[in-house]
Every structure is written in structure tokens, then in C-alpha cells.
Amino acid sequence: MKINNRLKIGIVIVGLFVLGGFILPIFCTVDPSLQGSYMDYAPVSWEHLLGTDALGRDIGWYLVFSIRNSLILGVTVAICTTAIALVVGLSAGFSGGRYDRVMMMINDSFIVIPAFPILIILNSLVKGHASQGAIIAILVLFGWAWSSRTIRSIALSVREREFINMAWFSGCSRPKIIFREVFPHVFSYAVVGFINSILWAINTEASLAVLGLSSVERPTLGAIVYWANTYSAVITEHYIWIGAPILATVLIFLGLFLTSTGYNQYFAERRGHS
């Protein structure tokens, strides 16, 4: 089966970021979030590939750590949301009836309620020092519902198909049917949902950080933009400081999104042929 270009480009981009984000920090000698490690506003050089910022931090290393931290946050949230989405979506889609209706009502409510203001409240309650755990908890609480909605509709359509009835009549138990017969069909959608959850979580956390509403001491893709913005990198014409993280963010989101739509397409084509 030919892998489409979207998936290829997406995997290459995401792969580069993952490798860079997790391998490079091994070679880092100075904690990049420490202020005053170097001269302020050092120009681009071999020592500082992207220069340093207004607080004497190496922009390149800061960016590397930001990518790593954001990816860890995204993946953690995505694992939890996908697990919840699978449980809710499969059980609702497979049970049908009143349980399904009630679950979907709750599901839709979690989609509708905006997570962003809730995160703002959380942060202000703890004076801008929300722990990573608390942020992840809120992101998970409001992040599972989109995937679960899709998975439920897939489960619902799979349920109508012939082979499920076969398994049903031949006496398979309900959990066994869900896992043996429905899961393979749901799997690809879960993968797409997983990647989209990573994207969404990184995006939401970064948006908070950019506004200074998250703890900006920890390097994340949002925090680095926050610092650049706070020190008016645009006005003072330190374009690398704000440009590099913006470019990195755009690339990483594009990579994740290409992977998810590319995988979706790949799976659709494979199904079409079998």
C-alpha cells in the first residue's frame, strides 16, 4: 500500500521534532530556563545558534526544551483523552438506547463548554503557578469529547453490520465483541483523535502561556512567545526571538495535522481496497 504524501511529510516533520526534542537535551549543559546564563541579546553565533534573549537565555536551547515539554504535555493529555473517548464512545455506541442518549448529551456538553476560561480560573486561583498536573487534568476533562463523539458514531455504524450479529448469536459476551470485532474498526479513528488531541492540548496550553496565564517559568512553545512578546521583540527588532518559536509552532502543528489527515486518508484507501 502506497503511503500518501501528506502522511509522509507529516511523519517526517513530527519525527524530526520528536528526535530533536528528546535527544538534543542530553547534550545541554546549562538549564535554558535560568536567567542571566549568558550575555543579553547575544547575536547569532556558533555558541548561540539562535542568539540569546533579553534575559540572557540561549534561544535555541530554550526552544528545544519548549518543544520537548509541549510534546510531553500533548501526549500525556492525548493518552488520557483517547482512553476516556474509547470507553465512552464504544460503550455509548454499542449499547444504544437511553444510555447512549444520556452519554451523548453529556458528551456534547463537554464539547460546548469552553475549556479556555476554565483554565484561566484555575491559573488565577493558584496565582499563575498551576502545576502541570492540574493543567493536564483540566485539558483531559474538556478534551475527550470530540474523539468520543466520532468513535461513538463509528461504533454505531459498525454495530449495524452483519458480522457483529454473527458474533452476538454465537454467544460472544459483550466486552469480547467490543474488543474483538469493533475495536479494529475504531482503531484508525482513535489514532486520528489521538493526534488531534495532542495538537489541541499543545495549542490550548500554549495560548494560555502566551498570555502569561500559565506558569511561564517552564519552557513551552507558548512561554517562549510570551517572553518575546513581553520584551517587545517585534518593536526592538529581535525577530529571531519571536520568529523562531512561531515557525517551530507552525511546523509542529502542521506536521501533526498532516499526520492525522494523511493517516485518515491512508486508512480510507486501504479499506477501499480490501
Binding site: L199, N203, V250
Partner: peptide, 10 residues
């Protein structure tokens, strides 16, 4: 595809 995944703040 190029527009959708980009965050508002960017």
C-alpha cells in the same frame, strides 16, 4: 490544511 492547525495567537 495550512490554516486550520495554526493557533489563534500565531
Amino acid at each position: 490544511i495550512l490554516i486550520y492547525p495554526i493557533p489563534y495567537y500565531i
